[in-house]
Design a protein around this nucleic acid. Structure first.
Lengths: 314, 314
DNA sequence: TCAAAAGTGTTATCCTTACACCCATGT
DNA sequence: ACATGGGTGTAAGGATAACACTTTTGA
């Protein structure tokens, strides 16, 4: 069923490495000077590494100096033109995107720079202090401009993804929100990729920091995937230290999900999922009543499923 | 951050094309004689096609003669050795897997052969007639054999994925179930790939038909993804004719999900989701009382979200 | 008149939401 | 004493699960 040899291509790995500090999700992205930052990427060499993931861990350890915990493939980006710049020829690089998590133990790395708050790139995704003013003041007026309603269903998507209500309805839809803004020409990358250029050059700088190539799209994919994964796999613990208070756990979930959760409901959820165990230790440095320290209940043996935290509205 | 040019590779597209006939999910897979069948695959040529999906539709139309409806990228498989056969050199083919759906209008294609029931490859995934006997008679005894408990958490995975209860708990976990069987050496592909060979050569033929390369893994990914997607996107209608009865819709969901649903609850779900509209027509050929014919409510305009069918237990 | 399939009303139960309140520590 | 954050009891509301029943056709 195959016919004719395909032309040779090169395959790269691009990775969104997430860490957490100060209740802020951080992403490793480097950029020289004023140029837009880029995610770490490296070539994949099948002669050296048997699988993508092995290759990924090797190049990240070697070039970035971070050891990865959880890692998961996101998507493979193969659009022609994704690495082209005006003038340059297109190198036909296909890129396999990965999400990876790293522990806050790596404080030296955090200090060394390169980690930036991911909400710098997606200011409309952080609803922890309520619905971002940006949405009502900039995004919705622009998206509701009739001139942009190119596709049918555009208005439906706008309402579903940015619609009213003080709470973030669909935290997982980060990629869809970014793509909507891209299609509407509201993010820098859309102008750079020569999409409709006329409208709203003035608005774009407000809509988050841009990145090289399609890296912001990869990051949006990573955010959405991580937010979804939290709900059915205990990946959150790959961002936590060994011992933690329940409030710290809640703040971490909130930071990733971009929204506030209800205290008792969260606790009931955690205990109901049987996912942590009491260490007997107390943390006194939080101010107020000392908090109990818990650890992740790994349950290697026969015990119940290690599901995630099916967080609801609040 | 990149260093040294990666070696040239070739990229292929492999696609699981799903159709539905007679309340049976079908997958396009061809095999000569007694050889294990293979999914359609073709080279990706970035000079001809701007994106993977365009390339996919082109090669499927040209070589297979099916026009695809919905299509979605699944995963990129890059393990060394996945295309190697004993003796042959390894051609280093990286393969991007896709899921695609096609309408039953394509009756000529169904008749032309090549479509096989997907449960031929995954007999343990069809719980519509209750818990498959295969699980308790063959799979669980083998998996609970202490000799196989290589990894920690093995027993926990066995319980979670094949555990007791008359109902299929996690229909979406098709890939995890396949991988568990693979790791335990219970499927043909495990023996072929030279994993632990000693045990249970006699059991394997009972555990579903095998496929070429890693195509059964790709198919397991496709099944799990489609089952998950049903619940939050209305993709089911890409497998339905324009007009259909509610029972036909329910049977289709059941066929994909591999489990039975409760009639009234299903109907309430459908009407509650506001996802179909009455055509006013009746279908009399079903025997018994004539059934109302519905169509998918496309709602291009302002209306509500087009979500999926959040089916519960029954 | 009966079989077969479509279609419905209603209740018991559990989960989610969110109110309000109490507890233990440092200053 | 009081501010601060940790920790809990409990009731209202809504979604889900499942019971059993009625309706409309063809044979």
């Amino acid at each position: 069923m195959s016919q004719g040899a395909p032309p040779p291509l090169s395959i790269g790995l691009t990775v969104a490495i997430v860490a957490l500090a100060n209740e802020t999700p951080l992403i490793l992205a480097r950029g020289a000077g004023a140029a837009p930052p880029a995610l770490p990427f490296g070539p994949f060499n099948p002669l050296q590494h048997r699988t993508f993931e092995i290759g990924l861990r090797a190049f990240v350890a070697a070039q970035v100096g971070v050891s990865l915990g959880y890692a998961e493939q996101l998507y493979t980006f193969g659009d022609r033109g994704r690495h082209s710049r005006p003038g340059d020829p297109d190198p036909h690089v296909v890129s396999v995107g990965y999400l990876a998590l790293t522990r806050p133990d790596e404080a030296h790395v955090l200090a060394s720079g390169g980690f930036r708050p991911w909400y710098d790139f997606f200011p409309w995704e952080d609803w922890r202090d309520g619905r971002p003013a940006l949405i009502d003041q900039v995004i919705l007026p622009a998206l509701r401009d009739p001139a942009r309603r190119s596709h049918p269903q555009f208005a439906e998507r706008v309402n579903r993804l940015f619609g009213h209500g003080p709470d973030l309805a669909q935290d997982e839809a980060a990629l869809e929100r970014y793509e909507l803004l891209y299609e509407a020409g509201l993010v820098e990358e859309a102008a750079r990729d020569q999409r409709d250029n006329a409208l709203s050059d003035a608005l774009r700088p407000a809509l988050g920091r841009s990145m090289q190539f399609d890296h912001r799209r990869i990051l949006a994919t990573a955010i959405g995937r991580l937010r979804a994964k939290l709900k059915y796999r205990p990946v959150i613990f790959d961002l936590m230290p060994d011992n933690f208070t329940l409030t710290a756990l809640q703040r971490t979930v909130e930071a990733i999900a971009g929204r506030r959760l209800h205290k008792q409901n969260f606790r009931r959820l955690v205990f109901g999922a049987d996912i942590v165990e009491d260490t007997g230790l107390l943390e006194t440095s939080t101010g107020g009543r000392p908090a109990a320290l818990y650890r992740f209940a790994r349950r290697d043996g026969e015990a119940r499923a290690t599901s995630g935290l099916r967080v609801g509205w609040h």
